[in-house]
Design a protein around this nucleic acid. Sequence first.
RNA 1: GGGCGUUUAGCUCAGUUGGGAGAGCGCCUGCCUUACAAGCAGGAGGUCGGCAGUUCGAGCCUGCCAGCGCCCACCA
Length: 857
Amino acid sequence: MAARIPDKPTLDGLEDRWSQEWDAAGTYRFDRTKTREEIFAIDTPPPTVSGSLHVGHVFSYTHTDAIARYQRMRGREIFYPMGWDDNGLPTERRVQNYYGVRCEPHLPYDPDFTPPDQPPKQALAVSRRNFTELCGRLVVEDEQKFEELWRHLGLSVDWSMTYTTIGEVARRTSQRAFLRQLARDEVYKAEAPTLWDVDFRTAVAQAEMEDREVAGAYHRLRFHRSDGTDLVVETTRPELLAACVAVVAHPDDARYQPLFGTEVTTPLYGVSVPVVAHRLADPEKGSGVAMICTFGDVTDVTWWRELDLPVRAIVGADGRIKADPPDALVRTDGAVDAFAEIAGKTVKQAQARVVEQLAASDELDGDPRPIMHPVKFYEKGDRPLEIVTSRQWYVRNGGRDLALRARLIERGKELQWHPAYMRARYESWVEGLTGDWLISRQRYFGVPFPIWYPLDEQGQPRYDAPITPGDDALPVDPSSDTPPGYSEEQRDRPGGFTGDPDIMDTWATSSLTPQLACGWIDDPDLFARTFPMDLRPQAHEIIRTWLFSSVVRAHQEHDTIPWKHATISGWVLDPDRKKMSKSRGNVVTPMEWLEKFGSDGVRYWAVSGRPGTDTAFDEGQIKIGRKLAIKLLNVSKFVLGISGHLDTDPLEVTTTSGLDNSFLADLLAVVDDATTAFDGFDYARALERTERFFWDFCDNYVELVKGRAYDGGDDVAALSAQQTLRAALHTLLRLFAPFLPFVTEEVWSWWQEGSVHRAPWPARDQYRISATVGPDRGNAYAVAAEVLTEIRKEKSSQKRSLATPVTRAVVRDTAERLDALRAAEIDVRNAGRIDQLETEVADALGVVVELAEPDAA
RNA sequence: GGGCGUUUAGCUCAGUUGGGAGAGCGCCUGCCUUACAAGCAGGAGGUCGGCAGUUCGAGCCUGCCAGCGCCCACCA
């Protein structure tokens, strides 16, 4: 076909135009008739729909898209659905702020409720169902905005295949998977001390916990021995003194060995507590003796459990000191009055009061000593976690089972990690697990546990005899649905039933994204064609959550790993190399950049970041990407201007020039390099190779053959250059297509049928190159380019135009290289404007140039 | 405390069988040249974090040390 080349090629408007064309043509539509071997299935991270996408999303999703486009061009059918993570706490928080409401689960549903236009100052209390309806409404709006951005960025997703993590299918999938785990005894409900966020009033999992350095202080408390002397204990949490159940020292600590087995009394309250020995007590720390409270930190839980100590809890689920003192205080004179002064206070207020009390009773040894120390926080929380005893659901994940833990580490080895060293993070996490996976949350917008409990005659739930729904009843909401064999009138009545009030944590659903995306429960045919999947792309910070939990679920449900490969992306750092985040206030809105520099430019920046590496946000790199895209337009216009009239196969080339031969050999070497890099998921390397070759092509090959390609006097020589240019363009467009989908598609449309994104990836066997010249002249192209550079250098140093004619040039070089140069002589003379070209054999390259005199005018 | 990564030009980074120290940006000097002035050509600029070792030869391999970043850890 004849090429149709715009007079003034431009990047403007390519995003809208081509995303519409691709949609209309179904370019990225998934063909589900393909077999498992033909399909490449990607388990894309469902972005959290709780506001806006940031530049970090653009970064990592572009990496995956480049891989998807490469695999598609290699002939794989790409299964690449997009999910929306609209489940859970981030959505709840957003709904609370957006509409000015809060959830009160005991309120009845109001079918006529409409949120106020402006969020009221005082949050409006609404029922759980009204609340979750608002959540559902808001996420739909957000999801549309997200899709718009992704399309603008050029993600080659099949937009008819989206899923959500709170939708009907997700709830049914989560509940079914949970019930199957229950039947296999992989989940259980237990009452235990639990990490607890006092603001969200929910339990949290080990994986959602993080350490933060905060200010604290060591307080030296005087406990009292029976002989009247003091035992000084250092603590950062004096407010928990009333919860103290023992003091502990290391068994080998000679200072305290005489005390083991004796009792001491606590300051303020005078409660007797035993002195016990445990290996975790550190003789180096403080006075070498610690107080054990129920519960100040996770070490307290270990001591409490292993030393079989009583519970004396004083912190409630709201983070305040409970109103009633523990029994041990009630039995001790004066203790109740001392406790009454902190009852109802927050732990911070209580600490201040307890310190005053201790000072007044002269039981505080010296002033508190300020320190900075790590304290555990919920990653989304603002106040330190407390430890509260509660009844929760747990998934067995190897935290308490060494055989399972070893098996899951083996699963990690079955998975191919890119980069490979990221597996170490998985292993160190699994090896450091301290308990099973806590999946229940005392929240509202999430998948409910599909469980009811019978109530005994006293109205107490029988947790040992849960009632489960049949598969065909799913999804259920036990707070409004009635269990089989009961009537709704029996809800919360003695002898009746009660629904499990909790919802599943968002990771309990997200850990099933392969099952959700591949149609595990509704579409066995699709599931067989897509699962286990090929690729899980994700960020390194959620290896311990998303990746690990997905491996656990696939291991339990399917006895396999969920994917063959995992690509782990780094973070986007701001130019000061801090992680970009909203709290730092340095987030760039992606749409601004996409519109300012074009999607291809932004994509170029993203795929310049090597796999797994944190990359600084860099406007300069985006501009370079934009320049590259513009260069592609211009050089394509030029190449097709010369060769667009040809009607032969672009990959069929008959060369009459050693220069063309050696250039094509270089081109195919780049194809090999890019292919190898992409097969190893190293998109950045594939791009770097292609880009370097492309600029060399523009600067040297095009300049060298320009004259010959235009010269109609020698048809065969001109044709050789024209065909070579055309083959190079055809190849380069395909090599760049995964990175710069818009500009490559634009140029492709000037002269090719169909989409470049469905064209086959370049490979040697596609080319038919026949040479009519004699023996291969090896590096003719490289030598010619070097000589041309010398000529340019001379003109530049004499401050003359590159168009200045060279009256005489003498090239000195080795005989071998001069031989290669002869194969390209005509091109070097054209490009350098050389009248007379002579050669002399020498040890290395050297060029003597005589320039024409400047015009007298 | 354990582990992983990283350190190459002013900046961002390539450098994969051990032999030439490179690219882009920035800076300087020039140039309208049969696509591209949003362009093109040329130039300056680096004891490749430090020390030791292996080798004919080390940016690359080995050991130790240091800075930076991250992951993990029972941090009273």
